[in-house]
């Protein structure tokens, strides 16, 4: 399994997937720096009448910058997870790589788990770089939370999108062609994201409950199909201590809702997400075990 995992790392390095991703991330961070600089407290009225820094205003600015940063970061992370793994099985079977490798004395589950670990470990590593970078840029221009436990919980939620998406992607790769799975995964993630977006926006609309019912059902189904966006919302809520600060900081304003919260996923939904990811992983492995190559 270690051999397959290191082969996966080598593949992503030699194919320059990571280099290109890091390069584009650097470009994003540079742009994000200027955005944060513009929105940060240096250019805003964050000083109170006595000339001291207004902490609430500073935190509000920081929260907004973080939401912007993670809005992009969530996308990048999801697409890295999709595009690194969407052809893991189908693509290698189509090219004939597996036909040469799998007659070797290695159980198929080890091959699957090794590939999964390789993709996930690199994705989570990249998530850490992105997470720290977004926090560092925001910190240079506004206030950010500094509680280590809170940061750790937020990071784990942020990075958990990687194993979730890779599990689904590898499951799809066992059924569809490489190209078909790439399209399927992009559409699935897009549907989940759109469901979350509609949910956020609908929360700010003053519509009757019975009118909202069909919309809620549709967005709920979309989020059930791909709960990645819901995890991102939960991550931001954790990071910004939504439940504790909502009375002091206007985190439920429409502009914040657009980027971040809307209706936060319930504990049951988070459990569903965990089961969904584990189920996708197990089903993918089972499918691969039985697949004719």
């Amino acid at each position: 399994m270690i051999t397959i995992m290191t082969m996966t790392w080598k593949e992503l390095l030699r194919k320059r997937v990571l280099v290109l991703t890091l390069l584009m991330t650097a470009v994003f961070l540079l742009a994000f720096w200027f955005v944060a600089d513009t929105l940060g407290y240096r250019n805003m009225g964050v000083f109170n009448r006595s000339g001291d820094i207004d902490l609430i205003e500073q935190f509000t600015r920081g929260a907004f910058i973080l939401m912007l940063g993670f809005f992009f970061g969530g996308f990048v992370l999801a697409f890295l997870a999709i595009f690194s793994s969407f052809s893991a099985i189908a693509g290698e079977a189509e090219q004939g790589v597996m036909q040469a490798m799998l007659p070797r004395p290695i159980p198929r589950w080890k091959w699957f788990a090794g590939r999964w670990l390789g993709f996930v470990s690199l994705g989570v590593g990249y998530a850490l770089v992105l997470f720290v970078s977004i926090l560092a840029v925001t910190s240079a221009h506004a206030g950010i939370p500094r509680d280590p436990a809170l940061l750790l919980r937020s990071f784990l939620l942020f990075a958990s999108v990687v194993p979730l998406i890779i599990s689904v992607s590898m499951l799809g790769s066992g059924f569809f062609s490489a190209l078909g799975n790439g399209v399927f995964m992009t559409m699935l993630y897009g549907a989940g994201w759109l469901g979350g977006m509609i949910e956020k926006l609908s929360g700010s609309l003053d519509l009757d409950a019975h009118l909202m019912q069909p919309l809620n059902t549709i967005t709920g189904l979309m989020s059930l199909a791909m709960p990645a966006d819901a995890i991102q919302r939960q991550m931001l809520a954790e990071l910004l201590s939504f439940d504790q600060l909502t009375d002091f900081v206007p985190l439920t304003d429409n502009i914040f809702s657009l980027f971040a919260f809307g209706n936060l996923p319930s504990a049951s939904f988070m459990i569903y997400t965990a089961i969904y990811g584990a189920g996708a992983f197990a089903s993918g492995m089972l499918r691969f075990q039985r697949k004719d190559l």
Binding site: K10, G96, V97, A100
Partner: peptide, 9 residues
Amino acid sequence: PELYRYQEW
């Protein structure tokens, strides 16, 4: 195998 490719990287 008849139809195969090895990891080109």
